[in-house]
Amino acid sequence: MSADPRLSLNQATVKHADLATALRVTADAGIQAIGLWREPVNEVGLDVAARMLADSGLRFSTHCRGGFFTLPEGQARVAALDDNRRAIDETAVLSAAGAPGSTAVLVLVAGGLPEGSRDLVGARERVRDAIGELAPHARDAGVTLAIEPLHPMYASDRAVVSTLGQALDIAADFDAAVVGVAVDTFHVWWDPQVLGQIARAGSEGRIATYQVCDWKTPLPEDVLLARHYPGEGVIDFGSLTEAVVATGYDRDIEVEIFHADVWADAPARVARRTAEAFAAAVSPFLP
């Protein structure tokens, strides 16, 4: 069995699988790349995870996740920045362990409003400040920090960066090799400026990763778990994928799904279904 060579399975799609299982079902489905999450990596230890990744023969596409930068000054913010430095180091090690074509990309989720705050502008400035503190470490490690804008429904609790334009405005202060953006269809499809902002991101050399999944209503009670297989909802993968491809982006494309029914399914079946959905909904728009 073989899948589109551009497809990467983000480990969140098989959330309840341990690292060994995630690597195995990805390879068995003919998928050539995987994006990893910190928690399963840390369960086995970084050195062991790196050996497991190397033995799998898979490329490494991203590490998830860093961020949560909106805390005010204090010990909690210092601890968060220190944890992000560890995440940068993990990304470098895993990228080196992956098959040729692996990339060293750490996805950043900005963080929501601190408790009791209504200051969105100030929170975004703290995101900029935090990335400024981390950028030298990322540069030295050879890691790209990918700011991921999240849909506005997450602005209060998860990400005060809601549009690709906002993410690019923050990234503009830094070298494109060090700070880029993540383009995730679930989070940006609704934005009337998205195609222009994808072109802008491409012209600035800042698309660090492209992630795909679908949007379908009604949303579940827990809106975090609202992501579907590509092709099951309303997102126009043609226009978005063609816009990303037009920038020259030629890296892996991750499928990242958060959905209770998908997580309850057998990981091997999820991996196979991911490959099938990607082939039907995304592959026709790739060169």
Rank of each mutant, 00 (worst) to 15 (best):
A182D: 09
T217M: 09
A146R: 05
A182L: 15
A20F: 10
E254R: 07
T144D: 07
D214R: 07
Y229G: 05
S117K: 08
I147E: 05
D55I: 12
L113E: 11
V121I: 12
A135L: 11
D83L: 12
R272F: 02
T217A: 10
S56A: 10
A80H: 01
L168E: 02
L106N: 12
G248P: 08
G132K: 00
E204V: 14
V178D: 03
E242A: 15
P100E: 15
C64L: 11
V160P: 06
P5L: 05
V244E: 03
I257A: 12
Q75N: 11
I198K: 00
A246Y: 00
E39S: 05
V178K: 04
D261Q: 13
L9S: 07
D265E: 13
V41A: 02
T163S: 07
C64S: 13
W190C: 05
I257C: 07
S102C: 14
T91S: 08
L145M: 13
P220W: 06
L164N: 05
D18R: 08
H151T: 05
G101A: 07
I253Q: 03
V188K: 05
P149Y: 12
D129N: 04
D222C: 05
A29Y: 14
W215R: 12
L36T: 09
W263H: 13
S156F: 00
R6Y: 13
G231C: 01
S239Q: 14
Y249G: 09
Y229C: 00
V14N: 10
A159D: 04
A104Y: 15
Q193L: 08
F68L: 00
A268H: 11
R65L: 10
A280N: 10
A3N: 11
D18A: 10
A167W: 08
V127C: 04
A171Q: 00
P230L: 01
A92G: 11
N84S: 14
T144A: 13
V255F: 02
A199Q: 12
W189L: 04
T241Y: 05
A87E: 13
H187Y: 03
A99G: 03
D222F: 06
W215Y: 14
R126F: 02
E125V: 01
F174D: 08
V234S: 12
L286P: 11
A275N: 09
A20C: 03
L145I: 10
T274N: 09
Y210I: 08
R118E: 15
T185N: 01
V160L: 07
A226C: 07
A176V: 00
D252M: 13
G98D: 03
P149G: 03
L164K: 03
L113C: 12
V179E: 04
I88L: 09
F237P: 01
I253H: 01
S8E: 04
A99L: 03
